[in-house]
Measured scan of single mutants.
Amino acid sequence: ENVVSAPMPGKVLRVLVRVGDRVRVGQGLLVLEAMKMENEIPSPRDGVVKRILVKEGEIVDTGQPKIELG
């Protein structure tokens, strides 16, 4: 899985990584606000952040790609 998608609709509060960052499985990639709760979205695997496809403040839909890992 190279693309991390939104598990639920919500607002991107914070992006916790930058392009080029090495990430580990379970590491937080971003914080999504859904139903007035903050949810940290974890990396599904070890890898390197290739692209960030969302911006802080953006509203995302379920299944929308957010971060691409290499």
Rank of each mutant, 00 (worst) to 15 (best):
P9N: 09
K11A: 04
P9L: 08
I67D: 02
R14V: 08
N2M: 14
I52Q: 02
D61W: 13
V3E: 05
V17L: 02
S43V: 03
V31I: 14
D46G: 07
V48K: 06
R24G: 08
V15I: 15
V3T: 11
E40P: 07
E40S: 09
V48H: 08
R45E: 05
R18F: 08
L30W: 05
G10Y: 05
K55N: 08
V60I: 08
G57T: 04
I52Y: 03
P42I: 13
E58W: 09
M8K: 06
P65M: 08
G70I: 14
K55H: 11
D21P: 00
V48W: 15
Q27M: 08
G70H: 14
V25N: 09
D61R: 15
M8Q: 08
L30A: 04
G26C: 09
G26M: 05
V12Y: 00
P7C: 12
L16M: 09
V4L: 08
T62H: 09
V31Q: 02
R14S: 06
M35F: 14
V15S: 00
R51I: 07
K55T: 11
L29I: 06
L16C: 11
L53E: 03
V49W: 00
N39D: 05
G10K: 02
V31Y: 03
Q64W: 08
K36H: 14
E58A: 08
V54D: 01
V3K: 06
V60W: 05
V54H: 01
V15M: 08
E33C: 15
M8L: 09
K36P: 04
A34L: 10
K55C: 11
D46F: 07
G63K: 07
M35Y: 13
L30M: 10
M8F: 15
P65D: 07
V19S: 04
R24C: 12
L16N: 04
G63N: 10
Q27C: 05
A34M: 11
E38F: 10
I52G: 02
L53S: 03
N39S: 11
G28P: 15
V60N: 01
K11N: 03
E56A: 11
G47T: 03
Q27I: 05
V25G: 07
K11C: 09
K66S: 15
R22I: 13
P42K: 14
S5E: 08
K55G: 08
P65T: 07
E56M: 09
N39Q: 14
V17R: 00
E40H: 10
P42A: 12
R45L: 12
I67G: 01
S43N: 01
P42T: 14
P65A: 12
E33F: 14
P7V: 11
P42Y: 12
K55E: 11
V31K: 03
V15N: 01
